[in-house]
Every structure is written in C-alpha cells, then in structure tokens.
Design a protein around this nucleic acid. Structure first.
Lengths: 219, 219
DNA sequence: TACATATAGTGATATATTTCACCGTCTAAG
DNA sequence: CTTAGACGGTGAAATATATCACTATATGTA
C-alpha cells in the first residue's frame, strides 16, 4: 500500500468513497480510462470538492492536470479500504428476505462469502435448495466460532433479533448487519449496522410530510 | 397539534426519533407507562442528551420530574412527523428481494400500502401469488400516475435501476428507496434513499480493516 | 415541611463535516 | 515555446451536529 492513512476518515466520506468505488468498477467495464472529480460528482450527486477531499484522505493519486486514472483510483481505494479482503458471512433467518440474501450473488462476487445459513425452524432447512450449508439456529455460536465467520446478516423477526445477535457475538462475530426494525445492543466491540426498510420508509414519509406543510416553518 | 415545529430537524435526529418511536410502540405493548431519556438512551445506544434534544425539536412533552409518558410521547412523535399518514407504495423488480418486500407485512401495518408490483418479465407476473396487483414494467409511469403512488421501492438489477427510477419519476412519484448498489440520479425534487446491502458490507469490512472501536450504531 | 434526588428543557460549547478559496501542475492549442 | 484553461490538493472558513452545563420542576422520604 503506497500511502498510510493519516487521519480518521469521516463516516460520510467512507460512504461516498464506496459509491465512487462502485462507479469506477462500472467505468472500468465501459473502458473509460480517466475521470475527473467533477464528472464523478455529477454522476453520483456529490460536490466535486467532497470527492477530492474524500479521495485525498487516502493520499495523493490524481494527475494534477487531468483527473484520475480509473484503474489506479479504483485500486487505490480498494487497497486503502481493505476491500480486497475476503470476509466470511452467514445469514440468520431463512424467510423470504433471508433466502434472497443467500442468493444475492453480488456478495460473493465482492469478497463476502456466504458460508452458512441458520433458521430456528428445522423443517425449513430441508426445503431450501442452496449450495450454502444450513444449520439450526441453536448451533449459531458453535458454527460461527468453528468456521471463523466475521459478519452476520440478521433477517429474523424483530422479537428474535437481540437473541440472534447475542449468539453471533458469543461465537466471536465482528460485525452485524441488522435487517429488523429494532435496535440491537452490541457488546464486545462488535459493529452493528442497520438496514431498516420500514425505517427508511418512515424517514421518507416524514420528509414528504414536512414538504406538505411549509407553513409550519414560520419563525 | 399543540406545538409548531420551529426549527429544521437534523437528519440524524430524525433517524433517532424514529428509533425512539419504534421502541415506544414496543413499550406500549409491554404496558410500560413511563420512560426517561436515560432509559431510552440505554436501550437504543444513544446518549440521554441527544434523546432530550431530539424530542425537544418537536416541542415540550415530558414531565420535568418523571420522564415521558409512553403513549403521549409516541403520539407526539407520530403526529409531528406525519407517521399517521397513509402512503401508497409500489415494488419494481419481482425477484427474490422484490417478492420478499411484497410480502413484508410491517409495511402495511405501518401505513405503507403496497398496491402495485412491476416486473419486465411478463411470464413472471403469472407465477407470483400475491394479493397485490401486478403489472409489466412498461406500465410503471401510467400506473403510478393513475393510482397516485407516492413511494417506489426499486429492487431491480443495477443496470436497470436508473431507467426504473426515471419511469417512476415520470409518473409523479415523490420518493424512492433504492436497493441496488448503484446511485440513482434524481429529478423533480424526488427524494432518494439507498438501502444497499453490498455497500453496508463494504463499510463494515472497511471499519474492521481499520480495527476501529465502534459502539456507535450508524444508520 | 424540608431536603435530596431524578428529570426535562435549553443555551453554550465542542466536535465533525462540508464548503470555499486558492495554489501549483498538467494538457492542449496556437 | 507560450499561454489559457482545467484539474487535484489543501488549509481556512462555514455549517451541522453532538456534548456539556445549568436551571427549574416534580417526586419521594425523613
């Protein structure tokens, strides 16, 4: 890795960098060789200033005169953000959402191997056809530990979310992505990220509601 | 409504308020009558200060001596954030994820009626059993317009995301939730929110790579 | 009653993030 | 070669958000 990251990267910048990374992959497929911060910003909806600042957190990589080389910038982000590391993941809760995730090829294609699925309903395990190994939920802790799984995807009903998280954490999981609409309490420095469809709908609805009654904004 | 909202509510506060709202619903079911900012904070992983600040954006509602009344605070948030409004939604892309969303009862139970599903594969429309009306994708604009759909959930492959969004927007959609890992360009003041599993996995992976200490639940 | 304690609300302060302004460099055109 | 324009990098300023410190109020207890 050419440059050490000197500063803590702000979370919003991280999000943008990953968006940039995705776009660079696409541009690479389209055989685009070079791209500028303003072009990236135009496409992604960010200001060019932000793009440059974000990228510069990872060290210098652009050409002063003529933008960024697509391949170089992509590898630069990949290397600095550790995107080249493989991570073992598992899915807990094999309802419609859980099985959708089991079959989400983008994960495997980007270094996130789904190597185990869990459900508390043992009968359900028989009926699902997948190359992923399936286990009953009470074996979560054991399997996570034995297989060295780092990331757990929780797609169980809300009432079971916390217990599921506890089992994953007991197994030594390092990060959790939680699809249920309830907050999960973390322990042992485990990182939690929420992907909450209902919550997003509500935020959207709220923002729309504010637009509907601008009169309330009177000072 | 008793109080007017005088100030713009910061986005992070909005997110926390919705988490608080969810928790209040749960507490109501458990017959808890009263709760304090520190109790809420403990459960949700926020600081009590933030909770109080967030709530106070909506006006005064607590009892100085003894916390918040669960029911009162819940109704207060609901009313002020417009959570009592019904919103018509549709799902585009009826693969595994799309059909999972079609069947996600939490949406309907919280005022988000899913009233249409779309897919470009007409044959697929025949094979899905659901009470939701299904249409071919080329009718998106027309159906959205005719049925007054406000929120669109995009669960199509990445390459089709932008075109799908354009059709929804042409139909007069007001907000979009995008499940694909690519950014969508918005027009006409349409609000876009991204729910990107791959992106979240990548952020998690990056944070793990940095070996940062987490504890904060970013949404 | 008097007092200690727990609490909500809020202005002030600190921190985080974004935006701005500017510099030096490269490229391309003449 | 010279010059004009576009671009990346970066410190400084502005804005947004989080945290702190304090006040006033209610509750419980001796």
């Amino acid at each position: 890795m050419a440059h050490q990251i000197k500063t803590k990267i702000p979370n919003p910048s991280l999000t943008r960098l990953l968006a940039i990374y995705h776009l660079l992959e696409q541009l690479e497929r389209e055989n685009v060789k070079s791209v500028s911060s303003s072009e990236l910003g135009k496409i992604l909806g960010f200001k060019p200033d932000s793009i440059r600042k974000d990228v510069s957190y990872l060290g210098e990589v652009g050409n002063f005169g003529g933008g960024y080389e697509v391949l170089k910038l992509k590898d630069h982000i990949c290397g600095n953000l550790g995107l080249d590391r493989k991570r073992r993941t598992c899915v807990v809760g094999l309802g419609r959402l859980g099985t959708a995730i089991l079959n989400y090829d983008d994960l495997n294609e980007n270094g996130f191997s789904v190597i185990a699925g869990f459900d508390s309903n043992i009968n359900k395990l028989e009926t699902i056809t997948t190359p992923v190994e399936l286990f009953p939920a009470h074996e979560i802790t054991e399997v996570v530990k034995k297989k060295g799984i780092e990331i757990g995807l929780i797609a169980v009903p809300a009432r079971a979310a916390q217990e599921t998280a506890d089992r994953l954490i007991d197994g030594g999981i390092r990060g959790i992505i939680n699809f249920s609409p309830v907050a999960i309490k973390a322990k042992n420095n485990v990182m939690i990220r929420n992907l909450d469809l209902l919550g997003e709908c509500m935020i959207l609805s709220t923002l729309l509601a504010f637009r509907e009654k601008p009169a309330d904004q009177v000072v």
